[in-house]
């Protein structure tokens, strides 16, 4: 039983990190209908911002840790907005394939720039939060896991609030549903898109720091695998659907963790992906997606 609970906690905290990344994929897809492949590298940049901020801030304190995470979120938000403004916006209105290929280009650019600036050798991520281990009846929970779950829960509720209770969030949903109609009520689509990138990238930045806390070695290619998984999670949940992305990510994190803890652990990714493919066979639009989201 406690073994099961232990795995549950591990799976949820991994899934929560995937969720923070997956949300950015799905939100950008929602408003622009393309996959921002550079998103996983924004996540990586977030970890590095957290790393450098951590060097200058007091270590091992909640406040210092939060400040590092805040810096990563802010830095990534700016990065996301700049990428959209400089690279994707000029291509808007053109064929989607062009934007997709460009996104891959931006991704490679960030990875190579990362190797140039940060170096290719992995670095140990500092303990920016107090490192303590809590033990409750045989259950071992690290402080970092508590932080992952707490922070991602707060961020997801904040996102839910922004998207459903604020004017700019409602405008985001309006643009995702029908950009022409959004223009006709006076919504400045450029601002909404910038806002979407800022929001998604900030979440990825937080995800980067949280990931680095639990897998404490960071390098410029660290975004590739979790980025791919988060992308799959977004598709699994129904690309473009915010709750779907969170659900898909939690599911993926749990499946991966439980398989990892079993005797088939060598095949954990293969099994996790096989399950996902099976789900998509039965629900091609994803768990919460609709087959035709676009209505005229």
């Amino acid at each position: 039983m406690s073994e099961f609970l232990q795995q549950l906690i591990n799976g949820l905290s991994l899934g929560a990190i995937y969720a923070l990344i997956a949300l950015g994929y799905t939100m950008v897809y929602g408003v622009l209908r393309f996959i921002n492949f550079a998103h996983s590298d924004v996540f990586m940049v977030g970890a590095f911002i957290g790393y450098y901020a951590g060097e200058h801030l007091p270590r091992g304190t909640v406040l210092g840790g939060m400040a590092s995470m805040g810096a990563a979120m802010l830095g990534c938000a700016v990065l996301g907005v700049v990428i959209e403004r400089l690279v994707y916006r000029p291509l808007r209105g053109g064929p989607t394939l062009n934007v997709l290929i460009t996104a891959i280009g931006v991704s490679l650019f960030l990875e190579y720039a990362g190797q140039l600036i940060f170096g290719a050798t992995p670095r140990a991520f500092p303990d920016i939060f107090p490192s303590r281990v809590i033990e409750i009846r045989g259950l071992i929970i690290s402080m970092n896991q508590v932080i992952v779950i707490a922070v991602s829960t707060v961020l997801m509720f904040a996102l839910e609030f922004i998207v459903h209770r604020t004017k700019i969030g409602t405008a985001m949903r309006a643009v995702a549903l029908n950009p022409k109609a959004a223009l006709l009520v006076g919504i400045n689509i450029d601002i909404v898109i910038s806002f979407t990138f800022a929001l998604g990238s900030a979440l990825a930045g937080a995800g980067g720091v949280l990931y680095a806390l639990n897998y404490p070695s960071i390098d410029p290619l660290m975004g590739v695998v979790p980025g791919l998984k988060a992308f799959v999670a977004a598709v699994l949940g129904g690309i473009g659907n915010i709750q779907g992305a969170a659900l898909g990510a939690l599911l993926l994190g749990l499946v991966e963790t439980f398989v990892d803890g079993s005797r088939w652990s060598t095949y954990k990714d293969a099994i996790a992906f096989a399950i996902l493919i099976a789900i998509l066979l039965f629900r091609p639009a994803g768990l919460l997606g609709r087959v035709s989201a676009e209505k005229v």
């Binding site: 309006a174 549903l177 005229v296």
Partner: peptide, 8 residues
Amino acid sequence: GRMVFSNL
């Protein structure tokens, strides 16, 4: 075609 925001 009205173009109301159908999910809102």
